[in-house]
Design a binder for these strands. Sequence first.
DNA 1: CTTGACCTTAGTGTTCACTCCAAGGTTTAT
DNA 2: ATAAACCTTGGAGTGAACACTAAGGTCAAG
Lengths: 137, 137
Amino acid sequence: MRIGELAKKVSMSTDALRYYEQQGLLSKPQRNQSGYRQYSDRHVAQLNFIRRAKDVGFSLEEVAELLKINFEKEQHSCHEVKELTLRKRDLVAERIAELQRFHASLSQLAKDCCGTSAPAEHCSILTALEDIDGLNH
Amino acid sequence: MRIGELAKKVSMSTDALRYYEQQGLLSKPQRNQSGYRQYSDRHVAQLNFIRRAKDVGFSLEEVAELLKINFEKEQHSCHEVKELTLRKRDLVAERIAELQRFHASLSQLAKDCCGTSAPAEHCSILTALEDIDGLNH
DNA sequence: CTTGACCTTAGTGTTCACTCCAAGGTTTAT
DNA sequence: ATAAACCTTGGAGTGAACACTAAGGTCAAG
């Protein structure tokens, strides 16, 4: 199948597929005599792997690492794959914690603000951002 | 005071200060006869506002909006400021929810994996990423 | 035989928040 | 007098994940 059909089948853009190939994520397909890429079901499977890995939060670089391991399974251990997964999970957890701090601060700011149509002259949010001790730090 | 001293005082890089000026976040300071920027305490206050707004999760573009409102307080309402804050809070909440889905998926993958030094031939993580029904969707 | 859908490469643009660099001019200390 | 430390501008680079464009080649249908 050609790139357009594959793109439709996996719901990705042709640009994305060529990009994945260029980044070493999607193996290079054969070409027909006029240079068009010819894909097989193997590529569909690869792209599904990529999508699933992305869906659980791995970056393309990390997906590439996973694909490499998957390709040479016998040379890698379960431990290695699990470590990668746990490391990623911890990074995600850190980012969540940071965003939760943002969320709490924003909630507090909003809670203290009257939110009326009165001019913002003494708006508690602006005051908090201006003052040294407006926030909890 | 010159840019280096200001940078030290607010713990930011001189590059960042020039960048903020260029982005319209930090008001343009006076220049001495040789073109050096001359800052005052007003700029220190402005930078503290910027840092606090960043610390609660606002992007530089949003900080610029807040600074503008703060500069022309009488022309804006508390409502407007609160709306901005709430909208940002909701965006942060959405991102948190997404990351929590990542976290849950990664935890599940790791939990199902033996994690031993055995070859990854039948690693449950790789299998889950390969198989159509490996994940919950 | 021509239209339109498809394909090719190479290259640029997008967002964010800076950082780094080059190539000069200025100030301060010794 | 000179070296070190500071300042200036403009522009390029970072990473993620593509999107978009230009300028052309190819293929199937009417």
